[in-house]
């Protein structure tokens, strides 16, 4: 194991985040605050509580997931896409670094940033609404697993994309809608039965539900199922990454 290389890539990526500190930290704080103002105040005044939890508190896990998924993907995809775009990828490919080490460096850094971001959003939420975490260990577990999984998906997108537009397309056209429709701002129990069934096809439902359970002990789907689905997504991402490196897809000609 080339630990020095993993550490070099990881530190390189973390340094990139430090250079864009405003974008990395201030923007999620502002957008979270805006969600609270819009959803918490405007809608929260009409919906008193969901499952015994005040609406403002109810949406917190969903808000964290919303940023976590988007940021994990955009961070990791940009991290690997940019060297491909500039050509500096030659250095990674010609160095004695294995695929696993490359992924650990890039996706590991992206996941770390996402977890830090999640913590910042939680802290921001704390200012607006009362929060309590019933299962802190599971909360952290869901946070880390989701960050890691979607950083891997981001890595895959960064390899697949052959232009900046494609880099944006997946987060924008797939992840954001799925998150909004995935029970971030409502319980899927509030949907008509048909739509509830459709909603169960949305993978984000399981992530949000499990994460919310770790806070309040309430869930749309059984927490075991949530955990299983999260693990499944992780496994899928790992299989795709493995395939990319085995075939040299978009990396080697």
């Amino acid at each position: 194991m080339n630990i020095e290389a993993v550490s070099a890539i990881y530190r390189f990526e973390m340094a990139r985040a430090r250079r864009t500190l405003m974008q990395s930290i201030v923007s999620p704080v502002i957008s979270t605050s805006l969600y609270f103002v819009v959803f918490g105040a405007a809608i929260g005044s009409r919906i008193q509580s969901v499952g015994g939890i005040s609406y403002g508190s109810f949406i917190v896990p969903g808000l964290v997931m919303l940023s976590l998924l988007g940021q994990s993907i955009s961070n990791a995809s940009f991290g690997i896409y940019f060297p491909r775009f500039t050509g500096t990828i030659y250095e990674i490919l010609s160095a004695p670094v294995s695929p696993v080490e490359i992924v650990l460096g890039y996706a590991g850094a992206a996941a770390t940033k996402s977890v830090i971001l999640g913590a910042i959003i939680l802290a921001t939420a704390w200012i607006f609404v009362p929060l309590h975490v019933e299962h802190p260990v599971w909360m952290v577990a869901f946070l880390v697993l989701t960050a890691a999984t979607f950083s891997l998906f981001g890595f895959i997108i960064g390899i697949w994309a052959d232009g900046f537009e494609k880099l944006q397309i997946v987060p924008l056209l797939i992840v954001t809608p799925l998150t909004f429709l995935g029970g971030s701002f409502y319980s899927i129990d509030m949907l008509p039965p048909t739509w509830r069934t459709v909603a169960l096809l949305n993978p984000v439902v399981y992530l949000v539900s499990g994460f919310r359970w770790s806070f309040y002990g309430i869930a749309d789907v059984n927490v075991g199922v949530s955990l299983g689905m999260t693990a499944l997504f992780l496994a899928i991402a790992l299989v795709i990454v493995g395939w990319i490196f085995r075939t040299g897809y978009r990396l080697k000609t």
Binding site: N2, I3, E4, A5, A15, T86, E91, I92, A95, P96
Partner: peptide, 18 residues
């Protein structure tokens, strides 16, 4: 790269080679 310093990019390569 564009934004890294000369020192850090050279150190980065050394790290990549373990």
């Amino acid at each position: 790269d564009a934004f890294e310093s000369v020192w850090s990019t050279v150190s980065f390569t050394r790290g990549l080679f373990g």
